[in-house]
């Protein structure tokens, strides 16, 4: 559906997007994941036609979009700060795209009611945008983008400004809506949980370059570089040497199968376990209670090893033994 070939966008000398290649399939939700300043928003703006590319092409169903004006593209974009029209009430905000398209008033009104119901705001029609909470604003922005049945939906960090509880609920609802619509969607975020919760595929962007594209689990299990691994929040990154089914880590040697030689690996914290019979001995440096579990920082052979345990709380300074689930180790190509 959407093809991006060698897309480059510059602001003066600053290269915001550097030869991006990306493809979006029918009904697919793609999450673009990257730290702030990585060029995520610029990518969306370029697709929407709000930025003019300095190189490369954006194609929709084979046709080059080029410098086609934004209003002729038929795409929907939900802005980070919602960009609700302050001088229009909620109904008029949602109706805007329909009016521009020249829809009959009756049909437009029916559609407005429909999308407002879809986002859980039935009856908000006549209210002013200033009376809304952050979550409600976000819903209006979504309804406004959905109303004209766009060919492509784009989201620019739409829940970043909301509190955590609300964020989770909106994400779940958004996932349902996207699933029902089968409209292709691009969702830009710096939060990997958001990206993994919504996306069929994830694209990792950093400093204007695309580092990796793939299904969430595949990207997580096979990060293309240490940059990707670090950004995904993979922990316990180290060099290991493998010989005769013994993996020598900086924390100590463990048994396990892996191709012989030297590798760079990461070990998810959940795959490091306290075990009285474990081969690695370590000292507890710090225990922090997070999300119902203890996140524990250990010191083994003068290197930090992070683990998660359900409890009881490992006391700081106590000596423990540890095993590592070697099959959970993630190999990072160097």
């Amino acid at each position: 559906m959407l093809e991006i070939v060698d897309l480059t966008v510059k602001f003066g000398d600053y290269v915001a997007l550097d030869q991006i290649n990306l493809e979006l399939r029918q009904g697919e939700t793609l999450a673009v994941l990257g730290p702030s300043g990585s060029g995520k928003s610029t990518l969306l703006r370029a697709i929407a036609g709000l930025e003019i590319p300095d190189g490369g092409e954006i194609r929709w169903e084979g046709a080059v979009l080029g410098t086609r004006a934004p209003h002729t593209r038929g795409f929907g974009l939900v802005f980070q700060d919602y960009a609700l029209f302050p001088h229009l009430d909620i109904g008029a905000n949602v109706r805007f795209g329909l009016e521009i398209a020249g829809l009959e008033e009756e049909i437009a009104n029916r559609r407005v009611a429909e999308v407002l119901e879809m986002v859980g705001l039935s009856g908000f029609h006549d209210r002013s945008t200033e009376t809304l909470s952050g979550g409600e604003r976000q819903r209006v922005a979504l309804a406004r983008a959905l109303a004209p049945n766009p060919r492509l939906l784009m989201f620019d960090e739409p829940v970043a400004a909301l509190d955590q509880h609300l964020r989770a609920r909106l994400l779940a609802e958004l996932a349902d809506i996207l699933h029902d619509l089968s409209t292709p969607a691009i969702y830009v975020t710096h939060d990997q949980t958001e990206a993994f919760a919504l996306a069929d595929r994830v694209a990792v962007l950093s400093e204007g370059r695309l580092l990796q594209v793939g299904e969430p689990e595949r990207v997580w299990r096979n990060p293309a570089s240490i940059e990707v691994a670090t950004f995904l929040g993979l922990e316990n990154i180290a060099e290991v040497r493998v010989q005769d089914n013994v993996i020598s880590t900086p924390w100590g040697a463990v048994k396990g199968t892996m191709a012989p030689g030297t590798h760079r690996i990461a070990i998810p914290a959940a795959s490091v376990q306290l075990d009285p019979n474990g081969p690695i001995s370590a000292v507890v440096v710090r225990s922090i209670f997070v999300d119902g579990r203890y996140r524990v920082e250990l010191q083994a052979l003068n290197r930090t090893l992070v683990t998660e345990v359900a409890g009881p709380r490992p006391l700081e300074g106590s000596k423990v033994s540890v095993t590592i689930e070697t099959e959970a180790m993630v190999v990072i190509p160097s």
Binding site: H71, L77, F79, F85, H87, F96, G97, I100, A145
Partner: peptide
Amino acid sequence: DRTTEEAARVLGAGQWQAFRRITLPQ
């Protein structure tokens, strides 16, 4: 808020329409 004008453009309003209906009222 410049994004309101951009939002209007993405929703199908031409430059003049976006100015008249979104920017001018503000």
